[in-house]
Design a protein around this nucleic acid. Structure first.
Length: 637
DNA sequence: GAGCGTTGTCATTTT
DNA sequence: CCAAAATGACAACGC
């Protein structure tokens, strides 16, 4: 617990500084007083500060799970900087004041205007929460704890492979942006009022700001490291602190026009800064990762990459447990309250809203939803009509019957699908029918591919004018999903392509059918933003919280509950059978034991009878009782 | 094609 | 009383 507190306080200090620089207000005052003792102590003991542990404990489990470790260099820098504050306990406001004072001391006339904006930041940061701030804080506190719980639960499970892939992508992205960042930073330093720089800043996204910030930090890191390493330098430390570029760099960063408007959700991931950068730039690397990877959930969700999103969602299942455990173990007075933590990341809530807004069928009155033609709805909303119809036809238990509302065209289409699937050699199982349109449903979850789906569907209709038979193959095995319409060949050529690939694609579909269950396909078809594992495995309260937080149609909720009920029952049935087998095995074991006991008792009885005869009867006489032994009855229970 | 085991699902009962 | 778990029965499926 003590170590945890140290981790927290030191990590909170660093993160407070970081977020203060980017204009994010944190109420960490209550947790910073012991910082001085910790920071001024042996920093070597905290050379590696796991930020994910900090976030797990502090409740930031909804952030990106890839969290870097802060290097010893960072701790030393902070130690050095905190020492410059004097002996008083370090508080957030003092950190702000120090940072801004350092910036203002180095300010120039040309930067005065920007300094005023920095002063605005200073006053805003140091003042008590304004009315707006209080309202915001209240809103943050009003956010239910269950939101974070549910959300973090959904975003826990994250496999390592996907993280590695993310790292690769981010590394490549970083290499590209690093060059831009360096050029922009140089431009910014040389010509602070350069319109070009100004316009580029305005036009650039937040990653650019972050890159500049990290670049400035990297320069600071290099400067300070050079100061520490170069013992031959005759320049005193205090002078170095005054003359080094730290204050200037802070001034530069704080004076960025867009900084005042920056928020965490504006920060975009710039990837693993370890790649393509100076290896000695711990400061740069770690802070970049800390921001870009930990505080990029909103961005990650808004990008709506199904893979990343799914990984992110699944990653928080495990973290939810740790989060709850940490909640139960921590001192409520010494740690952040959940509501505050929720408030720290309002964009999480917004992200959920934004996400679900893409998923909902907002344009439909849910009261009449069940009465309208779901197939036409599916077409309009990007659902897969065939998949939806077949999935619901195959699943009558959900209480949704589409047979009455299906159009003849779609009905015939579905029939043709079954026929074609059978002609391809597939057994006419219902599972094969369901698997037909799986590829078409791939990636449909989340609504991010809505336009893509529409585009694909248009392709299908366009191509159906050229060939009758293979169009269904195209519908079933939509492997032109990523192709733009202009990239498509003529209908005839496409028809030949489909015919050539038909058998291969059918194999793929059958393989996919083995991998993905019916519920998974249904979830994909209805754009249910949870996986089957999540739906079935999550606790009841989390499940209900998610259903209430996501904008889901009655159909989606019905299917989700259906999936959960069957999944739970499936597990229950498995457990029941296991218990039954165990019971049978136990009974068999009892039978063996009782049989052995019976044999032993019979043997003992025979010995007793023999002994009794020898005692009661003279030798040579026969005992008639030996000729008859009553049967021994064994009652198992 | 029958037989058998496994699995999923539903309806019902139990907790 | 309700929800969840447990269980019997049935069907589909694979070998």
């Amino acid at each position: 617990m003590k170590d945890l507190k140290k981790y927290l306080t030191e990590g909170l200090l660093q993160f407070t500084i970081l977020l203060s620089l980017v204009g994010v207000r944190l109420d960490f005052d209550s947790y910073l007083p012991p910082i001085r003792e910790i920071i001024l102590g042996s920093s070597s003991a905290y050379s590696q500060i796991p930020f994910h542990s900090l976030w797990d404990t502090a409740g930031g489990a909804s952030l990106h799970p890839k969290c870097p470790h802060l290097s010893e260099g960072v701790a030393r820098r902070l130690l050095h900087e905190v020492r410059a504050l004097g002996g008083a306990p370090v508080r957030r406001t003092e950190l702000h004041a120090w940072l801004l004072q350092a910036a203002q001391d180095q300010g120039t006339a040309a930067q005065s205007s920007n300094s005023s904006s920095s002063s605005d930041i200073s006053s805003e940061l140091q003042e008590e929460p304004t009315a707006e701030g209080r309202n915001s804080s209240k809103e943050q506190q009003d956010v239910e704890t269950g939101d974070v719980l549910a959300y973090s639960y959904l975003h826990e499970q994250n496999d390592t492979s996907s993280l590695e892939q993310d790292d690769k992508k981010l590394s490549q992205e970083t290499r590209r942006e690093d060059n831009v960042r360096r050029s922009n930073a140089d431009c910014h330093k040389s010509q602070n009022s350069n319109p070009c720089t100004e316009s580029s800043r305005n036009s650039a996204n937040s990653p650019h700001l972050l890159d500049e910030f990290t670049h400035l930090l990297a320069e600071t890191e290099n400067t300070l490291e050079g100061m520490n390493a170069n013992t031959a330098s005759a320049q005193p430390t205090s002078e170095i602190l005054q003359s080094n570029s730290m204050g200037e760099l802070l001034q530069d960063f704080l004076s960025l026009p867009a900084l005042q408007e920056i928020s965490l959700e504006d920060i975009q991931p710039v990837g693993n800064s370890n790649s393509g950068l100076n290896p000695s730039s711990h400061f740069h690397v770690n802070f970049t990762q800390a921001v870009s990877q930990d505080v990029s959930l909103h961005e990650a969700m808004l990008r709506s990459d199904p893979t990343l999103r799914r990984n992110s969602e699944t990653s928080n299942f495990q973290r939810e447990e740790s989060f709850q455990q940490s909640n139960s173990s921590r001192n409520p007075e010494a740690f952040l309250s959940e509501s505050n933590l929720t408030g720290l990341f309002p964009y999480v809530e917004n992200s959920i809203r934004n996400l679900t807004n893409q998923d909902i069928l907002s344009g439909f009155d849910e009261n009449i939803f069940d009465e309208i033609n779901l197939m036409s709805l599916a077409i309009e909303e990007g659902f897969d009509p065939i998949g939806v119809s077949q999935l619901f036809e195959a699943d009558s238990d959900s209480g949704l019957s589409l047979s009455s509302s299906r159009s003849p065209t779609l009905s015939s289409t579905s029939d043709s699908l079954s026929t074609s699937a059978g002609e391809e050699g597939a057994v006419g199982y219902s599972g094969d029918v369901e698997s037909i349109s799986y590829d078409h449903l791939e990636g449909a979850v989340g609504g991010c591919l809505l336009e893509h789906n529409k585009c694909c569907r248009l392709e299908c209709r366009f191509d159906s004018d050229f060939c009758e038979e293979p169009q269904f193959e195209h519908v079933h095995h939509n492997h032109t999903y990523s192709l733009l319409p202009q990239q498509l060949k003529s209908g005839t050529e496409q028809c030949h392509l489909w015919s050539a690939e038909a058998s291969k694609l059918n194999r793929c579909d059958r393989d996919a059918d083995k991998i993905f269950s019916r519920d998974e396909r249904r979830a994909k078809a209805l754009r249910i933003p949870f996986s089957v594992e999540e739906i079935v495995g999550m606790p009841v309260d989390v499940f209900n919280s998610l259903l209430s937080k996501y904008y889901l149609t009655d159909v989606q909720i019905s299917v989700i509950r259906d999936i959960r009920r069957r999944g739970k029952n499936k597990v229950a049935a498995q457990n029941c059978r296991k218990r039954k087998l165990d019971a049978i095995l136990n009974l068999e074991n009892d039978v063996c034991q009782l049989q052995a006991q019976k044999a032993s008792l019979l043997k003992e009885k025979a010995q007793c009878n023999k002994s009794g005869r020898s005692l009661t009867q003279p030798e040579g006489e026969t005992c008639m009782s030996d000729a008859f032994e009553p049967p021994v009855r064994i009652y198992l229970r």
